[in-house]
Computed example of a mutant assay.
Amino acid sequence: MVAYLKKPEGSEGFHQIVDFLNASHIRYALTENPTIYVSPIKQFWQTATARTLDNGEIELTAIIDGTFKTVTEAFVERHL
C-alpha cells in the first residue's frame, strides 16, 4: 500500500505529522510502489538461519537462487 503524504483539508491537526513524514528518511518507503518479487522472499524465509556473532550482533544467512546471502544489522544500516 502506498501513502499519499498530502495535507488534508479540514484535518489541520495532521499537517505537522505530514510535514514530519515528508522530511523523514522513510518517506521513500511510504510513497514508492516498487516491484516486489515473491520468489526470493520465500526462498529467504525457507532457508534462513540466525546466529549471534562474538560482538553480539545477529547474522542471518539464507540461500537465494543457489547463492548464500548474509545479512547483519550493520549491512542493513549501511544500505539504508
Rank of each mutant, 00 (worst) to 15 (best):
Met1Cys: 05
Glu73Thr: 05
Val2Trp: 05
Val71Asn: 01
Pro34Ala: 02
Ser11Met: 11
Ile36Cys: 07
Pro34Asp: 00
Ile36Thr: 09
Glu59Cys: 08
Gly56Ala: 09
Lys69Phe: 06
Ala3Cys: 07
Lys6Gly: 03
Tyr28Cys: 08
Tyr28Trp: 14
Val38Lys: 08
Thr72Glu: 02
Ser11Ile: 05
Asp65Lys: 02
Ala74Met: 09
Ile36Arg: 03
Ala50Asn: 09
Ile63Pro: 05
Thr72Gln: 05
Glu59Lys: 14
Pro40Leu: 11
Asn55Asp: 07
Asn55Arg: 01
Ser24Asn: 03
Lys69Thr: 07
Ile41Cys: 10
Gln46Lys: 14
Arg78Lys: 12
Asp54Trp: 00
Ser11Asp: 10
Thr52Tyr: 04
Tyr28Lys: 13
Trp45Asn: 09
Ala3Phe: 11
Ala48Cys: 10
Ala74Cys: 12
Gln46Arg: 13
Arg27Leu: 00
Gly66Met: 08
Thr67Val: 03
Phe44Asp: 12
Phe68Tyr: 03
Asn33Pro: 01
Ala74Lys: 12
Leu21Ser: 11
Thr67Leu: 01
Glu9Ala: 06
Thr61Asn: 14
Val71Phe: 11
Glu77Pro: 00
Phe20His: 00
Gly56Lys: 04
Ala62Ile: 01
Ala62Thr: 02
Val38Pro: 06
Ala50Ile: 02
Tyr4Thr: 12
Tyr4His: 15
Arg27His: 10
Gly13Tyr: 04
Ala3Ser: 09
Asn33Tyr: 09
Asn33Ile: 02
Lys42Ser: 14
Thr72Tyr: 14
Gly66Ser: 07
Leu53Glu: 15
Val38Ile: 13
Thr47Ala: 09
Phe75Ala: 08
